[in-house]
Write a protein that binds this DNA or RNA. Structure first.
Lengths: 146, 146
DNA sequence: TTCTGAAAGTTTGAACATCAAAATATTTGA
DNA sequence: TCAAATATTTTGATGTTCAAACTTTCAGAA
């Protein structure tokens, strides 16, 4: 086992990059980049899929998202929908094709989580979860209030 | 506390993204993108800083890296060096300016690790480190042998 | 009611990042 | 000696992102 410092640093530097690449390789669909898959994911999971809110969730500008949505519309994964209530707003809807992609994505995350859970004894898992919970709160607070 | 599944998923989805953004915000130097900072980091830490090996470490093609090195050379952060031993090879060296950037980067990681360590009781930290060690091995093995 | 400013999206032009393929120079091995 | 392999750079194309300008629509004040 490594020291606490070394392991934590290792995790910060490489673990996440490894996971990202595995995800990219696993999910790469013909003609869909990992960015596009994340846009589809955000659309599928958003409680209120309007452009501005989606852009916030994805941490990109509305302009960038608009370009991405247009290409995903052409590729048949997303639809733009206008409503009477507020005719400025655009609602982004996933097509059946997008839902299929999203299902694969969800499955990938589930399998990854199962793999990690299977790796550790029950008691250690409980501690890991508690610790990660604390770390996550710490960083998400720091990210929200820089 | 959340369930094991939910927390692990949360970590996989958001925690590292938060950290990445914090890093980007903290290290953003005038006229240096986060990618360029990572190239500088790789050059500073490589035991054998030749183009091909650096490109492998950064998971980009040698062509992409060559472009990046050229702009960092123009900006005064890197130097190309040819040696007699194998005149095909190019060794990339950091300038003093690059070493300063790298020092800031190292400090950032150290502070982040300290923050996490300060967050947890000693016993829990030991379990966290052991668990992360296992997870890291699992994924880096999976990344190496897909 | 009629403006005016704010809000929601889209378009556009520029800057990067990245890749694959072609090109150059050098080394290695048969 | 020469062909194949290796190390790198250059080039052209594509994708991502942003800021700024623009259009349409809404909401509140006069």
């Amino acid at each position: 086992m490594q020291t606490a410092h070394a392991t934590l640093n290792q995790v910060l530097v490489t673990l996440f990059n490894d996971i990202l690449r595995i995800e990219e390789r696993t999910l790469s669909a013909p003609g869909l980049s990992i960015r596009e898959i994340h846009v589809i994911e955000a659309v599928c999971e958003a409680p209120d899929p309007r452009m501005t809110l989606l852009a916030q969730a994805l941490h990109v500008t509305a302009g960038s998202l608009s370009v991405a949505v247009s290409t995903l519309e052409k590729k048949g994964y997303l639809l733009r929908e206008k409503v009477q209530q507020d005719r400025r707003a655009t609602y982004i809807r996933p097509t059946g094709k997008a839902l299929q992609i999203q299902e694969k994505h969800t499955l990938f995350h589930q399998e990854m989580v199962e793999a990690v859970i299977g790796l550790l004894p029950k008691e250690e898992l409980a501690v890991l979860v508690k610790a990660l919970d604390a770390v996550d709160s710490y960083f998400s607070q720091k990210e929200t209030n820089p």
